[in-house]
Design a protein around this nucleic acid. Sequence first.
DNA 1: GGTTTAACTGAACGCATGTTCAGATCAAAG
DNA 2: CTTTGATCTGAACATGCGTTCAGTTAAACC
Lengths: 195, 195
Amino acid sequence: MARTQGSHSDITGPRVRAAALRLFARQGYAAVSMRQIASEVGVQAGALYNYTPDKQTLLFDLMRTHMEDLLAAWDAEAPEASARDALEAFTRFHIRFNTSRADAVFVSYMELRNLEPGNFAVIEGQRREYETRLEAILRQGVVEGSFDVTEPRIAAMALIAMLTGINTWFRARGRLGLVQIEALYWDMVRKAVAV
Amino acid sequence: MARTQGSHSDITGPRVRAAALRLFARQGYAAVSMRQIASEVGVQAGALYNYTPDKQTLLFDLMRTHMEDLLAAWDAEAPEASARDALEAFTRFHIRFNTSRADAVFVSYMELRNLEPGNFAVIEGQRREYETRLEAILRQGVVEGSFDVTEPRIAAMALIAMLTGINTWFRARGRLGLVQIEALYWDMVRKAVAV
DNA sequence: GGTTTAACTGAACGCATGTTCAGATCAAAG
DNA sequence: CTTTGATCTGAACATGCGTTCAGTTAAACC
């Protein structure tokens, strides 16, 4: 019978993914070896293959899961509201979500070029999906007359780039807390699309 | 057979750097081998060591040179003008310069973590220097009363992130030309810091 | 035309890589 | 207590890595 209770796989599996995510973020996918990940978890390299068919799939699963979490979290939080309120909600959500998962965000952006073509297409699609959520808010604002945005797709990418850039300097113990950072960036976002 | 016809260090040196830059941008520093770079240039791997002491220095020199070019180009172009005019000049300069050297920009950002600590510190310093140029413009605008920016350093990083993001989607043969893109982004930048 | 020497080859070095797999281990099921 | 099978070890495999260097070639100089 199956070894359900106390099974190590319930513990080792997540630990493998956590170690891989941390190491990929710090050193980059290509520079991290399976032995390094295994050492972090406390097993031999061969044992990792109980949890992933290969290194590429380990990377892909981390990125896919992150993007799924991102989309699901926003969809659960997106308000039915005016474009202005939706944009404020999006701005604050993006800052909070991305700063709370810096490693996953970093890996999902930096390691795109290390994905096999098929895997790349999937992640690229998820990224476009997320951009489209913001684009829709901007288009709504134009219709409502509250935004002045001539190229909503480009404006969406510009705002996301600006917000994600926070991760390059944000430190949880820094001078500014998330509340202040949200306020600063919402101010810039609001004005950038204003009429 | 050595020293094939027409080959010379004045030619091979730049070709080595160009090949390395292209490959580093496409596949990442860790995923590119010296043999791959050599093959691109048309020599054996050992010949590369006439042009760089090692792979790490090859990467570092590419990044350092790029950052030096960036700073020198802006310093040569920065106008003595109102903060508003200086900000417009900076915005247009950044877009033109960065889209014209996509590989170097990409490498100089993505491969920071593959630099040895000493090399990292140098590039980090150059990056801060560039951010400080923009920060100074924003502070000037606050003094002049034309900008409303409570955290000039953070606003500078936010604007640079937004502008550099263009590189992720810009294609020279795309629907929008640089003239239109400059106009779109200058509009967002201008409004984002407006009073 | 002979000499010099920069530029390059080709082989070698020790070490690390992703992945496989037969066998060991041991908690839980019967 | 015996059996089961999930989990993991440890060794092996073929391949590739960055780097070194003695030797070869050909362009430049006298």
